[in-house]
């Protein structure tokens, strides 16, 4: 009769370890993706604010005064949705590749070329914030493309305008 409780205890502990170990791994991956998506939303919002207020880096501003005059005036830019597509494990990067897809709205900007400029800024800040969030700025290029986290690599599709 001696030792029965110990075996039950060991079984419970063993099962707990078997369940908790994969659960911890999957939770940590989900947490990382969650953190990256939060950073991407934050960055997209920042890009949309700068687009909306027409407040740009000097070089970009002077380019726009010649090529995209509409963009040097404020406009109403909103982020509608940020989602992603998991493109599976990428052998080149040795990480899981995630493509971000940002949906935005800018009813006062109708030109496709102008919208591309606005979208590029939104995507740039989304990638930048991911890099800042995981402190991986030194692993990527000046456009933060692609953006890296520990287990994922992030790229951005063209912004969808609604």
């Amino acid at each position: 009769m001696q030792g029965q409780l110990s075996i039950e205890f060991l079984l419970v502990i063993g099962l707990s370890v078997m369940v908790l170990f994969p659960l911890t791994i999957s939770l940590s991956e989900a947490h990382e993706l969650n953190q990256a998506m939060a950073a991407a939303r934050d960055g997209a919002l920042h890009g949309a604010i700068l687009d909306g207020l027409a407040f740009y880096p000097e070089e970009t501003f002077f380019n726009y005064t010649y090529e995209h005059k509409r963009l040097i005036n404020p406009s109403n830019v909103k982020i509608v949705k940020v989602d992603y597509i998991n493109q599976g494990f990428n052998r080149t990067y040795q990480k899981t590749k995630i493509q971000l897809h940002i949906h935005a709205s800018a009813p006062s900007v109708t030109s496709k070329a102008d919208r591309n400029c606005l979208g590029d800024r939104i995507n740039f800040y989304a990638r930048k914030k991911i890099c800042e969030s995981f402190e991986t700025q030194n692993l990527t290029n000046s456009l933060f493309n692609p953006a890296y986290s520990n287990k994922y690599v992030f790229t951005t599709a063209d912004v969808s305008w609604e």
């Binding site: 207020l53 027409a54 407040f55 740009y56 880096p57 000097e58 501003f61 002077f62 005064t65 040097i72 005036n73």
Partner: peptide
């Protein structure tokens, strides 16, 4: 800080 905003 290296950024510009313009009012027409």
């Amino acid at each position: 800080k290296g950024r510009c905003g313009y009012s027409f």
